[in-house]
Nucleic acid binder design. Structure first.
Length: 424
RNA sequence: GGAGAGGUGAGUGAGUGGCUGAAACUAACGGUUUGCUAAACCGUCGUACUGGGAAACUGGUACCGGGGGUUCGAAUCCCCCCCUCUCCGCCA
């Protein structure tokens, strides 16, 4: 969420920039400022009254020690009215703070100046393309059929065990998953990221910290008995490591990576577009997260994009990098690059990574701050994250593009990890 | 899950109703001293909100695991929850 002071000091600019994210609720911005004014007013009045109260209490203490019981009792009577006033202010304070908070979380992050204007995915800007689309014979199979043909990927079995969207990988299919995870982690570690293996369930505080709660509650599986949530991405536990933390400038940047399964309820669409591995409820992903100084966050974003690009190149997949337009960007992001790989049998671009700079939007919610040497005040860090990478669609593309009459050819980079060259 | 002990600032740890935003020590930072290192000594050493001020700075309020309560007044008393440790039970 944005800070009130930022909104206050840059009201017109904020409105103008948010318009590019199709956010035009000017009244929310006004409400925020009005509520914040009121909050300050109450704070001042209530604090003054509390100061009076504290002074009287001190007096009473002294009077009692001096044995002046009568005067002490008189002083006590004076507190009754004060106490009531303080209580009323306290109630209003709770109310105003709650409303302010509620309103504040409705305002999306402001987009970076370089974000293309546009409403939908069609307005996104392709910044780079790489790799070569294979030419497949007419009878080329989509990955779900290949899975059946070679018996390494089983949706029916997942259906039996759990339900739709929970595929089972078998034999070399399972091995391929493990290979990709190891490859991605090794690459991240080589690029200076520290590996974490976080819990796969998080509490409410963490859900709030990264913005899944309270609004997007339906995206996560909820274990109600223990009030824990299955993580939809490693971003949640990993970023929350830095919740309520004050860092020093020397500690930045902090680079973390984590492999986790991800669980998404995805109540959304079914049908042709989401067949096979294109959209599932549980999948594996390696995530990279950086906590950085505000001055360097955009350079960091480019670094992370380059890192992800290196991965798809090494996997020899045809890919393109897309800069999201204002209308297609997430609520929390200031600038996002999506990576898409081409699945040649489906003849579709599939999104496999989303690399974003959140600037201080997420940090404000997390209360992750840092101090410059010699500076007494804390400042919000910038946070970034990206998938590096999400497996299912990578696998889909890999399988479809590399199919041959004698099996599916594994890219050379992966062979040391899989231990086999052909998936057959 | 049962029984007991406990959760205080970066760390150790004192504090059982007012003189405590919190002793003392350690660490850290700045300085004095010193041929160098060490030691010694002095000072600084939490966060958030808020009033004043251009700022340096300064006044106020809150915070001693979290939430509620008692009281004129709570780190301190009461209730609920969370967590840690020891013992027992169960278990990969």
């Amino acid at each position: 969420m944005l800070t009130v002071n930022y909104i206050r000091d840059n009201k017109e600019e904020v409105l103008k920039k948010l318009a590019r994210k199709n956010f035009n609720r000017h009244e929310l911005i006004d409400t925020i400022i009005i509520l914040d004014d009121r909050r300050k007013e109450i704070q001042f009045k209530a604090d003054s009254l509390q100061a009076d109260m504290n002074n009287i209490s001190k007096e009473i203490g002294q009077l009692i020690q001096q044995g002046k019981k009568e005067e002490a009792n008189q002083a006590k009577e004076r507190t009754t009215k004060l106490k009531e006033e303080i209580r009323l202010f306290g109630e209003e304070m709770d109310e105003v703070s709650r409303k302010l908070q509620e309103t504040l979380v409705l305002v999306p992050n402001v987009p970076h100046d370089s974000v293309p204007t546009g409403k939908t995915a069609a307005d996104n800007l392709v910044v780079r393309e790489g790799g070569k689309k294979p030419v497949l014979p007419a009878d080329a199979m989509p990955h779900w059929d290949l899975g059946t043909k070679y018996d390494f990927l089983d949706f029916e079995l997942g259906n039996k065990l759990t339900g739709a969207g929970f595929p089972v990988y078998k034999g070399k299919g399972a091995r391929l998953q493990r290979a990709l995870i190891s490859f991605f982690l090794d690459e991240a570690i080589r690029a200076g990221y520290r590996e974490y293996l976080p819990p796969l369930m998080v509490n409410e505080d963490s859900g709030f910290g990264t913005g899944q709660l309270p609004d997007k509650e339906g995206q996560m599986y909820h274990a109600t008995l223990d009030n824990l949530y299955l993580i939809p991405t490693a971003e949640v536990p990993v970023t929350n490591i830095f919740r309520d933390v004050i860092l020093t400038a020397e500690e930045l940047p902090i680079k973390c990576t984590a492999y986790t399964p991800c669980f998404r309820r995805e109540a959304g669409s079914y049908g042709k577009d989401v067949r096979g591995l294109n959209r599932v409820h549980q999948f594996d992903k390696v995530e990279i997260v950086q906590i950085v100084h505000p001055d360097t966050s955009y350079a960091t974003l480019e670094d992370m994009v380059n890192h992800v690009e290196g991965l798809v190149q090494k996997l020899e997949l045809p890919y393109r990098i897309v800069k999201l337009c204002g209308g297609d960007m997430s609520f929390t992001s200031a600038l996002t690059y999506d990576f898409e790989v081409y699945a040649a049998a489906q003849q579709k671009w599939l999104e496999v990574s989303s690399v974003s700079n959140f600037e201080s939007f997420q940090a404000n919610r997390l209360k992750c701050r840092f101090k410059e040497p010699g500076d007494k005040k804390t400042k919000l860090v910038h946070t970034l994250n990206g998938s590096a990478l999400a497996l299912p669609r990578i696998v889909a593309s890999l399988l479809e593009n590399n199919q041959t009459p004698k099996g599916i050819k594994i890219p050379a980079t992966l062979v040391p990890y899989t231990g086999f060259e052909w998936l057959d």
